[in-house]
């Protein structure tokens, strides 16, 4: 009985799903699948040619690069993008001294309270403060940016596939709109206030190219600030903001795996020895 009911239910589901298949297949074979501009022009992100120092299981931070990247963030990106989850004190991890971090903190103004009157004021930030946002709220952010809100950058490299490569590609990937796109997909050409970038998911984004000229920042360490250099430095910096424990994590991993390997080999030898007798054991 239960098998009979089972067979009927099984055939029922099969019938309905195959009906769906037949109708789906019919539509699929009769309707032309229209190509979209995204499917033709979207490009996969790639990192700088030499890769990053933090790549691979043995990677490490290049502190000089992170400091340069921080400089790019501060001088360029911070005009529009917040860094909500990063505290100013975290900069010590980039190799700045305590005093340098204090001085750096003091260069930012954060909302505070006047200790005498209790009125809202601005005060210089302390290392324990978080990086201040460029806009008081998301409405102000959207209003200043053609209705697009510049996303918080703290986690950006983890919030996109191959995030470090993505940020680099996005910053270096702005192009003229290809003639082919203008011809074949006139609807996909950027509306006013949007910019064409084949690395962005729908090709047109509201961020004007932020890195436009070599030498836009003057690096303290004398590195030549080409666009590609600034892009990879800020991508490295954002990799750090997204995962400050990245290198510690990998460095912790090796001894853990080493210990486990050792323990597993011991366990294997113990197992072999214990089972040696059992192969013939008949009692």
């Amino acid at each position: 009985m239960i098998r009979l009911v089972g067979i009927l239910i099984g055939l029922g589901f099969t019938f309905v799903v195959l009906l769906a298949f037949v109708t789906g297949a019919y539509t699929w074979s009769t309707e032309e699948v229209a190509e979209t501009a995204e499917s033709v022009f979207h490009e996969t992100a790639h990192g700088p040619e030499a890769g990053y120092s933090f790549d691979g299981p043995f990677g490490t931070w290049d502190l000089a690069q992170l400091q340069r990247g921080y400089q790019v963030y501060k001088e360029v990106c911070s005009a529009c993008h917040s860094l909500n989850y990063v505290a100013i004190r975290d900069l010590e991890q980039l190799g700045y001294s305590e005093d340098q971090v204090k001085a750096e903190a003091a260069s930012f103004q954060v909302p505070g309270i006047n200790p005498d009157t209790g009125e809202d004021t601005m005060r210089p930030a302390l290392p324990t403060d978080y990086f201040p946002s460029p806009y008081p709220n998301s409405v102000a952010a959207a209003a200043a940016n053609n209705n697009a809100i510049p996303p918080d950058l703290s986690l950006m490299t983890k919030a996109r596939h191959h995030g470090s490569d993505y940020v680099y590609s996005l910053l270096t990937g702005y192009q003229e709109v290809p003639a082919q796109l203008r011809e074949e997909f006139p609807d996909a050409t950027p509306a006013p206030g949007l910019y064409y970038n084949p690395y962005f998911a729908n090709l047109n984004l509201a961020m004007a190219p932020p890195l436009t000229a070599d030498g836009q920042v003057t690096y303290a360490d004398g590195t030549e600030a080409t666009i590609s250099q600034m892009a990879q430095d800020v991508a490295a910096f954002l990799t750090w903001t997204a995962e400050p424990q990245l290198i510690k994590r990998k460095q912790t991993g090796w001894p853990v795996l080493g210990f486990l390997l050792f323990a597993t080999i011991l366990a294997w030898l113990a197992k072999k020895q214990i089972w040696a007798g059992a192969k013939r054991r008949k009692d």
């Binding site: 912790t252 991993g253 366990a267 113990a270 089972w275 059992a278």
Partner: peptide
């Protein structure tokens, strides 16, 4: 017998598992 075999199996599983966790 099976405590030893399970111990070895756990070791192999943890090796794979922590490769994911750390890397």
């Amino acid at each position: 017998y099976y405590t030893a075999k399970d111990g070895f199996g756990l070791g192999v599983a943890l090796l794979v598992f922590f490769t994911f966790v750390f890397f």
